[in-house]
């Protein structure tokens, strides 16, 4: 079966790797009536086993690094990783903090980056749309 089925029904699992909760609130804002993520068939799910999209917020705290890898491995293929917020890219407000172990993409492969502190819900929705495009390209290659 083609990936075409997947891009119209993306289920999102949100993992917080030490975020300040700012990005997390923006993700919830994307579910509210104003932005309504569900009209595109997207849904927040409670388990990485159900997810197609892994949405990572926050810099990677030392304790979270092995957990992040484990959650990535628990997500069934095919999957996309979204990295939301500036701190997951270069530290943001936590820059050079003693308890961080680097950007998210040093631990798991990231497909789409969403900069911002925090990014607006529009940016997050656009990132998921870009993830669709990425899946389409992967389909063309395969």
């Amino acid at each position: 079966m083609s990936l075409n089925a997947i891009k119209r029904a993306l289920w999102i699992y949100h993992i917080n790797t030490g975020s300040c909760n700012g990005c997390d609130i923006e993700i919830l804002a994307a579910l509210t009536p104003r932005y309504d993520l569900e009209r595109f068939g997207m849904m927040l799910v409670g388990s990485p086993r159900h997810a197609d999209v892994l949405l990572v917020t926050g810099p990677v705290a030392r304790q979270m690094a092995p957990r992040l890898k484990r959650v990535y491995e628990q997500t069934p293929d095919p999957k996309v990783v979204l990295q939301v917020g500036s701190c997951g890219m270069e530290g943001g407000v936590f820059y050079e903090s003693y308890n961080l172990v680097g950007p998210v993409d040093q631990h798991i492969p990231v497909d789409v980056y969403v900069p911002g502190c925090p990014p607006r819900p529009e940016a997050i929705i656009e990132a998921v749309a870009k993830a669709w495009v990425k899946l389409e390209k992967a389909e063309q290659v395969a």
């Binding site: 079966m1 083609s2 990936l3 089925a5 997947i6 119209r8 029904a9 289920w11 068939g41 086993r49 197609d52 628990q74 069934p76 293929d77 095919p78």
Partner: peptide
Amino acid sequence: IQPFRDVRKLLAKESI
């Protein structure tokens, strides 16, 4: 028709 899409998608996914 979203539930139909959900089921189709789940069938295309890896079963762990």
